[in-house]
């Protein structure tokens, strides 16, 4: 019964015309440059002659064999994973607490948690560099209670703190969305059936929120692994992550093919995560239907 008058027109012409500008734009500025980058990653690089037009897998071999590169990838994965765990541990309870709040407070604090998304990452990261610096406010507070100052800035700890701060909204949002849709009387029903508050959370609320947690985790992991400003400003010149590595290769070393290789690996990792996520969602949907 959803058929409409417009269906009377030739089927392909109108939608093609409507979507043509965006389609051309996206083919020219997404697919084409990505293809060029893939090709670039198979070109070799000569420090005197520049980019060669041959095809070789040597860049990929370099990235996988050279300790500097694979240790950076390893750090990227490790820090992204730690960030994800922290985001779950903080974000999920926080989303639950938010959803239990009363009317004005709930939206006010939701704004406090997700509002920082509107503030530039550079600004927030700069704030953390002031807090964590050698003479920063965290060390100031430690000194005030008589503890030796510690080196925080330019450590992995600093990167993880910064990432966790940037990523928290991305965890709270999907979990909060799921919790909003839950029928609050279901949890109450569990309580009337004799479940403790904790049991009701664990057996009733948490399983229903699992999909939101999963989707938040994947977003957080993907964004952390490709983040640039935080390792750039909080990791200093020494602690590189994938994104800062690519930046160095492109704009400092000028070895574009190697930079492109690292970028392509980051992209592939991202796509694998997203595909796995879609599969999971589909399976979930099937289970719900059947």
């Amino acid at each position: 019964m959803s058929a409409s008058v417009s269906a009377a027109r030739p089927r392909m012409v109108v939608p093609s015309l409507l979507s043509a500008p965006a389609t051309l734009f996206f083919i020219g500025l997404v697919l084409l440059p990505l293809a060029l980058t893939v090709i670039l990653s198979f070109n070799s690089y000569d420090y005197t002659a520049g980019i060669q037009s041959d095809l070789t897998v040597s860049n990929y071999l370099t990235v996988l064999q050279d300790e500097y590169y694979y240790s950076t990838f390893w750090r990227t994965l490790r820090l992204a994973l730690i960030t994800t765990v922290i985001a779950v541990v903080i974000g999920v309870p926080e989303a639950y607490i938010l959803s239990n709040m009363r009317k004005p407070w709930r939206s006010i604090f939701l704004l406090v948690i997700i509002g920082p998304l509107l503030v530039s990452v550079v600004v927030r990261t700069f704030g953390w560099s002031m807090l964590l610096g050698k003479n920063g406010f965290v060390n100031g507070a430690l000194a005030a209670v008589g503890i030796e100052p510690v080196q925080l800035l330019y450590t992995e700890t600093a990167i993880v703190i910064g990432l966790a701060h940037i990523m928290l909204p991305f965890m709270v949002i999907p979990v909060w969305t799921v919790l909003q849709k839950l029928d609050p009387t279901v949890e109450a029903a569990a309580l009337t059936l004799g479940a403790s508050r904790f049991t009701a959370l664990r057996r009733i609320v948490f399983p229903q929120a699992a999909l939101g947690i999963l989707s938040g985790s994947l977003i957080v992991f993907a964004l952390s692994a490709s983040s640039f400003a935080i390792p750039g400003l909080l990791g200093g010149r020494r602690l590189k992550m994938a994104a800062t590595l690519v930046y160095d290769e492109f704009l400092i070393e000028l070895n574009w093919p190697l930079g492109a290789t690292i970028a392509i690996i980051v992209l592939l990792a991202n796509l694998v995560i997203m595909l796995a996520y879609n599969r999971l969602i589909e399976q979930q949907a099937k289970r719900k239907l059947g």
């Binding site: 019964m1 409409s4 008058v5 269906a7 009377a8």
Partner: peptide
């Protein structure tokens, strides 16, 4: 019945 009505209305061919 609704499809019939929509055909009379011209919303469905």
């Amino acid at each position: 019945k609704t499809t019939t009505l929509q055909m009379v209305a011209g919303l469905v061919r």
